[in-house]
Design a protein around this nucleic acid. Structure first.
Lengths: 267, 267
DNA sequence: CAGTGGTCTAGACCACTGG
DNA sequence: CAGTGGTCTAGACCACTGC
């Protein structure tokens, strides 16, 4: 459990004042107390005060630290839990979310086998085709919020399910945060790539955006996926973000959809 | 506002008892009070006690009706709002969600133009190709939870953006609930199809599942979408559900993704 | 101004977990 | 058993809407 003696000497929070009498016409910038608490907890998460998988302080502890009621802390944590930044477990505590847990593995992978669920296939076989350091072209630099020419890591790999190559993907990572990542490191790691990012580089992927298209397989892709050239493939371009909407990964995948499909739930 | 004199004479709710001492080994089937309240509100929504777009009774009214505190009603409504069944508006009330509002129009359509947002295109032009009543084949009956041979409505249409045909879709609807739906009715209706379903047939789509694949355009589809035969297209199969997870629509769409893409946010 | 949803508190009790 | 999150209550006050 977190150090009980290292309580932050938080200033006495006052509910965001409506700014009445200042700069009429601008938004009042009113922020409820629980949002401020949420922001403070978020800061601690970003700063790594509590690591993925570890418990954060109990609601009562946080209430004391921030000098608010338990209910207010609760509402702040509720939102963090809704955003999958944190996981509540009754009777145990609240834990920093991680990609390393079994039941949330491949959290961002929406490809499903046509019959049966994700567990009926067993783990994917991963084959790393290439891993190199290079200078980002504009089309890679821009989504990663880098300047063209900055160092990036490029990784190419194939995922196979039950012996059938199904996913071919190129991954680009900013060179700075991922300094020291090698093909060997990736190949020897058991578990999802995002879990390795957490433990080895302190980078936690929080959310992602995907753009999906249908494309025809070019010669190189067709060979790696063992399909005819021109075969329709699902093109999935993903940008994954850490805290604060900072992009940390660009991924361009080609999915075979003859035995699998991309599943999406609309609410 | 809803009739204040027609308060349901709800039985005095007691928090779901842990069932202690009965059938050991089975789940206690404990249900918190706010979940029971949520279920009751859901029943009223299904029964059409409040129509889409209309306000539901205030939190205080519901608290009195159900003999619980306002906070408990609030938590029930919070969940309904999170599921997009209901919309809260501070100072005004809580309203039954609808597909007819401008800012939630095309709520289930994830296709976006590659540059610019959904509003930069203006409304889609809709062209109805075909609309007929027929008996469901197994591949249509099964997703709709019908028996093969039951009556269904089949609709085929093309959506165009800025003059370019972009979406070709076939829609199947169960014949019972949608009795009386005709091509004319559809063609003359301004606004989203799901809004028409609400106002004309009392069917409100609440959520949907989509399965996405890449396919090659066949001759007929290619002609309608004005692309070469064999062109890769996004195949989007949607099952849309009303309350209680009852499937009410099967939709098979082919999307051109040369100028648009399917956008998905992962959390 | 009254009525609505939104925030915050304080306290009680319950369900679940682990030692 | 103590500690955790989960539920429920009652009351106060705030922000927003419309009359």
């Amino acid at each position: 459990m977190a150090t009980p003696s290292s309580l932050l000497n938080a200033p006495p929070l006052t509910p965001g004042e409506p700014d009445s009498g200042a700069l009429p016409g601008l938004t009042p910038a009113f922020s409820p107390l629980y949002q401020q608490i949420k922001a403070l907890i978020l800061q601690s998460l970003q700063a790594g005060e509590w690591k993925p998988g570890e418990p954060i302080p109990s609601e009562m502890e946080l209430a004391v630290r921030f000098r608010v009621s338990q209910g207010t802390v609760r509402k702040a944590i509720d939102e963090l839990a809704a955003e999958n930044l944190v996981i509540r477990r009754q009777g145990k505590g609240t834990f920093v979310a991680t990609h390393a847990e079994h039941h949330v593995q491949y959290r961002f992978l929406r490809l499903m086998p046509d019959n049966g669920d994700i567990n009926s296939e067993g783990p994917a076989e991963r084959q790393i085709i290439d891993c190199k350091r290079l200078r980002a072209q504009a089309d890679v630099a821009h989504p990663l919020a880098l300047r063209p020419g900055e160092a990036v890591l490029q990784l190419r790999r194939v995922l196979s399910f039950q012996g059938m190559p199904t996913i071919l993907e190129d991954v680009w990572l900013p060179g700075g945060p991922f300094k020291g990542l090698t093909a060997d490191r990736l190949a020897s790691y058991r578990g999802p790539m995002y879990a390795l990012f957490e433990t080895e580089f302190g980078v936690r992927m929080v959310r992602a955006e995907e753009k999906i298209r249908a494309v025809a397989a070019d010669a190189a892709s067709a060979k790696l996926l063992e399909v005819p050239t021109g075969e329709p493939l699902l093109s999935v371009e993903r940008i994954a973000y850490t805290y604060n909407d900072i992009p940390m990964e660009l991924r361009r995948g080609l999915y075979r959809t003859d035995t699998h499909h991309y599943k999406n739930d609309l609410n």
